[in-house]
C-alpha cells in the first residue's frame, strides 16, 4: 500500500494533501493561541507554559509538545519531498512552452510552488527567531514569549518578513485546501461551492489572525 502510494502521481498527491491538512489544522490552533497576546503578558506567557505541560502527569514536561513537533516535521518533510518530486515530473512533462502563451490559472494557483518555498524558508526563520532565539533581533529570553514577540516586531524587517509570509500562506491555503479535497476525492459538484468558500474563509482567517500580532505591536496595542 505504502509503495503503491509513493510510486503513483495520484498517491503522492494524497501524501501532499494529508500532510497539508495536518499542518493546516496545526495553524488554526496556533493562530488562535497567538491571539492571546491581546490579553496581556500574564495570560500569553501562562498559555505558552501550559503548552509544555499538556498531558501531565501522564506525559512528562514537554513530551506532548515534542510529539507535536515530530508530527509537524514529518508532515513538512513529506509535503516538501512530494511537492519537489511532483513538480519535477510536471515540468518534465511540458518541456517546450507555447509561443503564444497566456497566463490562465488564478494567482493563488500559479504561486503554489514559489509560495511553498517562501513558506518553507519562513518556517526556518520563524523557529530560529521565536523558538530558539538564534536570529532574534532583540534580547531573547526563554520562557518570556510575550516580551520576545514584542521585541521581535519592534524591528521593521521582522514585520515585513512575517506579513509577506502570512500573505503567501493565505494564497497557499486558498488553493491548497480546495485541492486537497479534490485529491482525497471528497469534492463533488454539489459540494464545490462550499469547499471553495471554506478554503477562502480559512485563508482569510489565518492570514488576518496571524497578521494581527505584528499589527498589534506596531500600533502599540500590544507593548
Amino acid at each position: 500500500m505504502a509503495r503503491t502510494m509513493w510510486d503513483s502521481s495520484v498517491g503522492k498527491k494524497t501524501v501532499m494533501a494529508v500532510s497539508g491538512l495536518i499542518m493546516l489544522a496545526y495553524l488554526v490552533v496556533h493562530m488562535i493561541g497567538n491571539l492571546k497576546i491581546y490579553f496581556g503578558a500574564g495570560e500569553f506567557n501562562h498559555y505558552a507554559h501550559w503548552l509544555r505541560t499538556i498531558g501531565e502527569p501522564f506525559m512528562h514536561y514537554e513530551w506532548t509538545l515534542w510529539l507535536i513537533r515530530i508530527v509537524l516535521v514529518v508532515a513538512v518533510a513529506a509535503h516538501a519531498t512530494s511537492a519537489y518530486q511532483l513538480s519535477r515530473r510536471d515540468i518534465k512533462a511540458r518541456p517546450s512552452a507555447y509561443v503564444h502563451a497566456k497566463p490562465r490559472a488564478s494567482y493563488a494557483t500559479r504561486t503554489m510552488r514559489w509560495g511553498g518555498i517562501i513558506l518553507g524558508l519562513f518556517v526556518v526563520w520563524h523557529v530560529l527567531d521565536l523558538t530558539t532565539g538564534t536570529v532574534h533581533p532583540g534580547r531573547f529570553e526563554h520562557g518570556h514569549p510575550y516580551q520576545n514577540v514584542v521585541g521581535d516586531f519592534s524591528h521593521w524587517y521582522s514585520n515585513v518578513i512575517y506579513i509577506v509570509a502570512m500573505l503567501a500562506l493565505g494564497l497557499h491555503v486558498r488553493h491548497g485546501f480546495w485541492s486537497a479535497a479534490q485529491t482525497l476525492g471528497v469534492g463533488s459538484r454539489t459540494r464545490d461551492r462550499a469547499l471553495k468558500t471554506l478554503a477562502n474563509v480559512l485563508a482569510l482567517l489565518l492570514t488576518a489572525g496571524f497578521i494581527a500580532v505584528p499589527v498589534g505591536v506596531m500600533t502599540g496595542v500590544v507593548s
Binding site: S9, V10, K12, K13, L86, R89, D90, I91, K92, A93, R94, R104, A105, T109, M112, H175, W178, S179, Q182, T183
Partner: peptide
Amino acid sequence: GFGGCTLTG
C-alpha cells in the same frame, strides 16, 4: 511521462 494534476482547471 504525463505530468500530475495541480487542479488549475
